[in-house]
Design a protein around this nucleic acid. Structure first.
Length: 752
DNA sequence: CAGTGAGCGAGCTTCCGCTTGACTT
């Protein structure tokens, strides 16, 4: 047996570290937390300083007993969980569970997983920092109290099964308040005037300049009259060029990715929802079989809020930049970035593990999705170490009768980082960018045409999953590991629904948010988390005890709760039905959304007189290959998405594969692609077509060798199946209940 | 591949944060 045991959180990390530490070290993973509060009750002694009642997380018994055995046979145990609050707490729980005396329990932390840092850090163990552990406990217990005391109130006052929490309730609130803004929005009329101008012959050249205001200050045009006043003057007065400004504009690259920025960019550029992004990133992190290299972890850890980059990685990037693009593209000094305040900074930024593995080089070993995501991460990282892009910019101000019109142009002079990575910028167009003739200051111009356009201000956009995550991060709500799961929670609770990519609150979400804003104002104030973090910092610094922090919080919270209970006596709060656009086939009323054992569905509001119902239809692109009808997305009993002809049984067409927009170029029929991980090229389903792909060749796996190497690797839908709400029926059927219970205990325990 | 809608004879719902693995043709 190895002399030393090292425990980290992630198995992929364990593998890498094992390589660096060699034979004398056994390296194992805890798979995150090992001990927690019980799920079925509060588990906190409110009478005695919030003493927590921890227990082993169900399903981890084997793992822990294995660690215990290894620990008993080792000279030293290195607790190498992540260098943050949660990591420190995991180490402490491990120390307790493995009965490690303080002398054998050596706490080590790795700020980056590079050979040098790992080998050096292992030489400098310390003891567990109980202040950090205490801060984690305070956080954990506070969240438990809020969640487990407010949720039951919602069960009693609104509906069973609901939930509230420090994070999810704020996330829901953001979606609700965005909707309120949209509803309250009053469009404001405004106008644009564009002047088509030309030089006076024989000088040639034309361009368009946009109205800015008077020569003294900006002016907004809000009515046709405003516009007419300007037009009347400008049409008569001569145009001339007042100033021409030329400047070099520099644009610097963005920092490398964190979890939240990766999710945003993947959403914007690859159309990949955050959940999927994380699943694919996980594949890249755990490692992909690269021909000639074996299994290689392609990126650093994907759940991070840090912008740190190891020196090693910076050097590698800089030398790659010099080799591939030339010295001019490599700035004199390396760029380093600072994470936003409040970041825990436990891992590095998300970057390629080995920048020399270019996306093109390993493309053949990756699935399409892996390739696209890797290319994004690789590009963003390389770019972040490159020189700024330089633009030659020119701004021309033309005047007429005291009014100012502006035209501008900017031209790329030096590509810099844009040679690798073009950022997706949110476009705003205050002037028209166009190639400009070679103009001179003071020169007269001819007005060819004045173009007037009436416009209206637009309401703010609904959140998408990615923009909601950005909003949460900006407010310090949630952590990289919880952004995507939190959105799943508020969708599961039906506080929010997804319409295409947009998040919209349901009537239930509004009722719950109203109650929370009214009765638990502090809890759903984004500043609450910020205050909590401040307090936790105090605990970490040893300036305040964790029980003190909790007492202060609970004094206030318990009276808030009491007051809420008192004010909410009597009848339950009614949740209005959400009205759809569907018309009831039987009585013509507009149908409403209801939710039942199998999720949401459409029902006639005339119930019980009219009992007509129908499932919610999501129409997919393409046509049924059997009968040409529409294809609908449906959900199986087990919660998985499948696709079926709208005629249902009458036609009988049904598949797990996803219909795609583009038709088969040969026969024009709808093509499908395998849902799930791996090979995703759309295939033709028509056996008479020359491009027909037989069933066995539509598979998930890339090659037979691949299939052999990882027989367990199955398909992954990315959209996690929504467990059908097992309401009372489950309780009535003991057999069904047992199977669910078994599964639940094993893996659904951490709950997503 | 339709079925679904309500607090009650009983037992149950719920939090945030750290991790991976798992599911039908």
């Amino acid at each position: 047996m190895a002399k030393n045991l090292v425990i980290v959180e992630s198995p992929a990390k364990a593998k890498t570290i094992k390589k660096y530490l060699g034979k004398d070290f056994e390296v194992r993973a805890s798979m995150g937390h090992v001990r927690d509060l019980p799920k079925s009750k509060l588990g906190i002694d409110l009478e005695h300083d919030f003493q927590p009642n921890y227990r082993l997380i169900p399903g981890k018994e084997e793992l822990v007993s294995e660690l215990r055995e290894l620990a008993a046979g080792s000279e030293a145990v290195y607790l190498a969980t992540d260098p943050d609050r949660e990591g420190e707490a995991i180490s402490w729980h491990l120390q307790e569970l493995l009965d490690l005396p303080d002398e054998t329990a050596r706490r080590v932390t790795f700020n980056e997983i590079t050979r040098g840092v790992v080998q050096d850090s292992i030489q400098h163990p310390r003891s567990i920092d109980h202040n950090l552990v205490d801060a984690q406990q305070a956080r954990r217990i506070l969240d438990r109290i809020v969640g487990y005391q407010v949720s039951p109130l919602l069960w009693r006052k609104i509906r069973r099964g609901l939930s509230a929490g420090r994070v999810q309730s704020v996330a829901t609130r953001l979606v609700v308040e965005r909707e309120e803004e949209i509803e309250a929005f009053v469009p404001v009329e405004y106008w644009q005037i564009d002047a088509d101008l030309s030089r006076v012959a024989p000088a040639a050249g034309e361009f368009t300049a946009r109205f800015v205001g008077t020569e003294k200050k900006k002016q907004e045009l809000h009515s046709a009259e405003d516009v007419q006043k300007v037009v009347d003057v400008v049409e008569k007065a001569p145009f001339s060029i007042k100033t021409i400004k030329r400047a070099d504009k520099k644009r610097s690259p963005s920092p490398p990715f964190t979890t939240s920025t990766l999710q945003q960019e993947a959403s914007r550029r690859l159309n990949m929802p955050p959940r999927r992004t994380m699943a694919v990133a996980q594949q890249l992190y755990e490692g992909v079989d690269i021909t000639g290299e074996g299994t290689v972890g392609l990126i650093t850890y994907m759940r991070t809020d840090s912008l740190r980059i190891s020196d090693e990685a910076i050097h590698a990037a800089r030398s790659l930049i010099r080799d591939r693009y030339g010295a001019a593209y490599c700035p004199a000094t390396a760029r380093r970035f600072k994470a936003r305040a409040g970041a825990q900074d436990a891992h590095e930024a998300i970057r390629p593990s080995d920048v020399r593995l270019t996306p093109e080089q390993i493309k053949k070993d990756l699935t399409t999705e892996q390739f696209k995501l890797y290319r994004l991460i690789w590009g963003r990282f390389v770019a972040c170490q490159m020189a700024a892009a330089v633009y030659d910019s020119m701004t021309v101000d033309a005047v007429s009768g005291g009014y100012l019109f502006r035209a501008s142009h900017s031209e790329l002079k030096f590509a810099g980082f844009t040679a690798v990575y073009e950022e997706s910028v949110e476009e705003k167009e205050s002037t028209v960018d166009q190639k400009l003739p070679d103009l001179k200051e003071g020169e007269p111009l001819l007005l060819k045409e004045l173009k007037k356009e009436q416009l209206f201000t637009q309401p703010p956009a609904r959140y998408t999953e990615a923009t909601l995550i950005r909003a949460m991060e900006e407010r310090g709500i949630g952590r990289p590991s919880t952004y995507a799961p939190t959105i799943s929670t508020i969708l599961d609770r039906e506080y929010v629904v997804k319409e295409r990519a947009n998040l919209r609150p349901t009537p239930l979400g509004r009722v719950v948010t109203d109650l929370m804003r009214d009765k638990f104002t502090r809890i759903v104030d984004p500043a609450f988390t910020a205050k909590m973090e401040e307090k936790l910092d105090n605990v970490e610094a040893g300036k305040e005890s964790w029980t003190e922090v909790l007492h202060t919080f609970y004094d206030d919270f318990s009276s808030t709760l009491e007051k809420a209970e008192k004010e909410l006596t009597g009848e339950r709060i009614k949740v209005p039905d959400e009205v759809s656009d569907e018309i009831c086939d039987l009585c013509g009323k507009r149908m409403v959304y209801k939710s039942g054992r199998f999720g949401r569905f459409l029902a006639c509001p005339g119930w019980p007189e009219c009992t007509f119902t129908k499932p919610i239809v999501v129409e997919m692109p393409g046509r049924c290959p059997n009968c040409g009808s529409r294809i609908l997305k449906r959900t199986s009993k087990r919660g998985y998405a499948y696709y079926a002809c709208e005629k249902g049984k009458d036609c009988g067409f049904m598949t797990w594969d996803v219909p795609v927009k583009d038709d088969c170029p040969a026969c024009g029929k709808t093509m499908f692609k395998r849902s799930g991980r791996g090979y995703k090229r759309p295939y033709c389903i028509n056996p008479d077509c020359e491009r027909f792909v037989p069933e066995e060749k539509r598979g998930y796996k890339k090659t037979a060798a691949d299939a052999e190497a990882k027989p367990a690797a199955g398909a992954e839908t990315g959209e996690k199946p929504k467990k059908p709400a097992a309401k009372k029926t489950a309780a009535k059927k003991p057999a069904a209940k047992k199977t669910t219970a078994k599964k639940t205990a094993a893996k659904e325990e951490p709950d997503t």
